[in-house]
Design a protein around this nucleic acid. Sequence first.
RNA 1: GGCCCCGUCGUCCAGAGGCCUAGGACGCCGGCCUUUCAAGCCGGAAACGCGGGUUCGAAUCCCGUCGGGGCCA
Length: 502
Amino acid sequence: MKSGRVRLRIAPSPTGYLHVGNVRSALFNWLYARRNGGVFMIRIDDTDLARSDDRYVEDIVEGFRWLGLDWDEGVEVGGPHGTYRQSDRFERYREVAEVLVDSGRAYYDFRSADELETLRARARRERKAPGYYIRRPSDSASRSRLAAGERGVVRFSTPDRPVEFRDLVRGEVRFEADAIDDFVMLRSDGSPTYHLASTVDDIDYRISHVARGEDLLSSTPKHILLTEALGAEHPVYAHLPLLFGPDGRKLSKRHGDTSLRSYREAGYLPEAVFNYMSLLGWSLDPDTEIFGQEEAIQSFDLVDVQKSPAVFNPEKLAWMNGVYIRSMNSVDFAALAVDAIEADLGRVPDDDERGRLAVLAPLLQERTRLITDIGPAARFLFSGITYDEKAWRKVMKPAAERALDAARTALEEVEAWTTENIEVALRGMLASEGLNARKGWQPVRVAITGSNISPPLFESLAALPRDVAMTRIAAAQQRIVRLASPEYSGFPHTEAFKASAT
RNA sequence: GGCCCCGUCGUCCAGAGGCCUAGGACGCCGGCCUUUCAAGCCGGAAACGCGGGUUCGAAUCCCGUCGGGGCCA
């Protein structure tokens, strides 16, 4: 063996949305396959018929496509091994179990749950492995009991010898015979367990390398024994470090929504997700943080993967997403921005609005971390504004009214409504009023955007229709006056005031 | 409880006996730039879990210990 192309697989269970832990495993499998000119495959481990659902298969496929991980065999793309769905192979698993029973490598077990519990209790008392006494019963007249219609499980009969193997990530690993129990392969309803189905598929599909989460490390000796009992050579294993949540436990539902789709929806770019996830347990070189698929493929190797678990850090992902956003060309960003704004607004921006957006797009790009940041940041251009009351309180002191008035007067005299002219007018206003930028311009910002945080002021004004800008400034002036009047004195900030855009 | 795995800044990664007064990144703090916010630039705080060995010399090797995690039950 070990000749020919390497063959790797990812085998998600469609019992929920594609999880980032699976994605990271898939990434490493994919990188290794691509690095070595091998085959990458997606198999669907849907032995749990009750919990599996096709919409999750769809989600898995979409997720990998979105990330840019292509596969050579498997679900949807097909290949020489059928549907690549375990639910279509139950007969095969039963047949394998049967062969093992016939050859004495497995046996029917009709013992009751109570009986098994007694054996486990004894093991516990004697401080032995839980399955220590769960071995082949000496009196198993199993064939006749089976014939009589009794329902039993099929257990693998573990040989009395230790299992050693070399793991690409962990190095030499050894399990003593006593630690490997006679595991169930077929349940009493005839359905296969994970151990059986997964091992049989890996053999049948000629998988050369199994790179999977470390949570499966202690099952590996079972898989090796089973593979060998079936006369095959076991694949090379690589047990990848787990992904942890901030609490230091295996990333799971308890940490909130960890599905890949939730990141998609939250405005992350696939390149950033790919890049960030590659860095969890691996690094390209000592000082490159930002890299793409091609570069990763060039230097990826499973033996370089870290042994210790990695905590998934959304902060750093968000930063990296910003890096990717900023590196986009302006045309691509503009297209992205239009989509994001459409999603935020719930309507398609018209041509005029798109034209005005173009003025602001480069400035928006610089400030964007997540795609979903764009809508709120650009909203003031497309619809009415709502004052951020904190910003209002901070900036719109009574004196701000004078600044707004001066700004409005200055802007009225502007000929063509351009960034340059607006800047000249407002700079002149500062000089003639003797105001600094903070006192003179921040009120204008709040007046036109509703917030003290916004894209640069002159461009923001220029991007707005002139009449809208003037109306907003006037409206803000009135509001200052009104809130300062006696009847509001006790409740100066309670009114939600809206200025209209058109 | 049994077995297994892991242990460098808060987090991710570099470090495979002397290049380490332990490096980079995110985050944090301060400064510069600046009309705000970002971006950018400069600077700062921040780690080899602990104890024994081995060695002229250990973050790097060995043992123990502590801590965390995983699987099975």
